[in-house]
Every structure is written in C-alpha cells, then in structure tokens.
Amino acid sequence: MKNYSGKPLVILKHLSLLLGASIMVLPFIWMLSTSLKPPHEVLSWPPQLIPNTVTIQNYVTVFATAPFARFFVNSVLMASLSTVAILITSSVAGYVFAKFNFPLKSFLFILTLSTAMVPLEVYMIPLYMSMVKMGWVNKFIGLIAPYLIMSYGIFFMRQNIMASIPDELLDAARIDGASEWRIFLSVVFPMLGGPIGAISIFAFQQTWAAFIWPLIITSSRELWTMELGLGMFQYRFTVDLGPINAGSMLSIIPVLIMFLLMRKKIIQGITLTGMKG
C-alpha cells in the first residue's frame, strides 16, 4: 500500500522543495546576471536570466563613478574592528562571569543580558545625542561605537567557559605563580577556539549589514559603508542598474563566502543564540 500512496507524495514533496529553492536563489541569480550584462541588455524584454554577452564593465563602473572602493574599505574596517572588539569584550566578560565571584555579579550579568532584547531602534535617539556631545558624529569612532559589545557573545562565552575550562586548571596556574591576566591570555583564551569562531561570524555579519546607524551617524560620503552607499546610490544619484547590481554583489560576497565555508557552524550557532544583540 505504501508504494501506491507514497510515490506521488514523494514526487510532490521534491517538486515543492525545488520550487521553493528556486524562489530562494532566483533573486541572487538575477542580481548576478544583471551585474554581468552590458547596458543595452539590462533593460531587455523579455528579461533574460543568462546574459548574451558577459562583461565586467559594471564592476569597473561602480568603482570608477562612485566611491564604492571607499565604501568597501569602510565596511571591511568597521566589521573587522567590531568583530575584534566583540571578541575581546565577550571573552573577558564571559570569563569573569563564569569563573569569579564578587558582589553585584549577577546584577551586572542580568543587566548586560537583558539589554539584548532592546533593539537599537528604541534607543538610537539618546545614543545619537551622546555622540553629538562627544563630537563623534560623522567620525569612525561614532560609527563603530554601538558595535563593540554583544550580549549574546558574553552569554555564549560564559556558557562555554563554564562547560569546558575546569577550575583546577586555573588554580594550578595560580599555584605556579601566573598572574590573573597571564592566566586569561595564555590558559583561557587559547581554549576558546570554538566560541571565538561562532561569535566572529555573527559579529561580522551583524556589523556588515548595519544600516540605520550608519545612516544617522554619518553625513559625509567618506564614511559611508557598503550598505549605506548602496542604499543611497540606488536612488539619489543616477547610477544605472548594472553597476548597482554589481555593487550589491560586492556587498554580498564577503558574507556569502563566510557562510559557505562555515555553513554548519553558522546554522548551529544561530539556532543557539538567536543571532541578535
């Protein structure tokens, strides 16, 4: 009986999965294809998924007519510095919360964790005003300031340190006369490979994709990130669809490469942390 009722269902299942998957990838293929088309083909009708002539002209144009090289460098700088900062703050705080006892510890831990549920959009106005006071508006430091910490990073590090680093190991190092910082740097930190990998991916992805904060904190193009530059150029200036799609490709590629290389880890980590805050 199974054979009769099962077969059509299995076919239906695969057809719907395939249809869904093509809807998922089609916009990406469309982006890639448009970015490789010469100007007269971009607006051809009917639309063509595969360009007749493949050209990298749009990629040249996007760098030549708009400061996209600058935007790219800004994004790379912002995302990597933010990742490093988040790794440092998360591992230090995660270690302290995992292995030390002091008054106010749980209060501070809950305080850092509970802010994760409040999105930037809720407090961006006072944050912006603080930046005005500090003179950090339209400066790189103002751009990166909200991205130096990550609640889930701290939480994740704490969990990992509690699970994987025994107290005896730390005590042994203390008996050998190592200072606390020394213990952190040469005993604890080298053991954090796993969580460091996972947190780097989230941190980089999150900062790279940031839009509303760069939008309000920067005023000069020199500081624009890839996302902001794309968002602005797609309507404010007359840049054609070809170059805009080339720019879009460039802004996707770094994250895409990371994802394809570390797919398993990303998916696991995301289900654990919720990828926010």
Binding site: A21, M24, W30, W208, F211, L230, N245, S251, L256, R263
Partner: peptide, 24 residues
C-alpha cells in the same frame, strides 16, 4: 543542500536584497 539554500537570504545583508527585489 536545501537547508543551505533556504538559509541563504537570512545571512545576506538587507540592502542588496532589497535593491534587487525592488528591481524584480
């Protein structure tokens, strides 16, 4: 493979995909 494909839009930044959808 399907998991990877369906997950693709999640990790992609919003601006470029919004730009391409606007064009779609």
């Amino acid at each position: 493979l399907y998991e990877t494909i369906y997950f693709l839009p999640v990790i992609t930044p919003m601006v470029p995909v919004a730009v391409v959808w606007k064009w779609i």
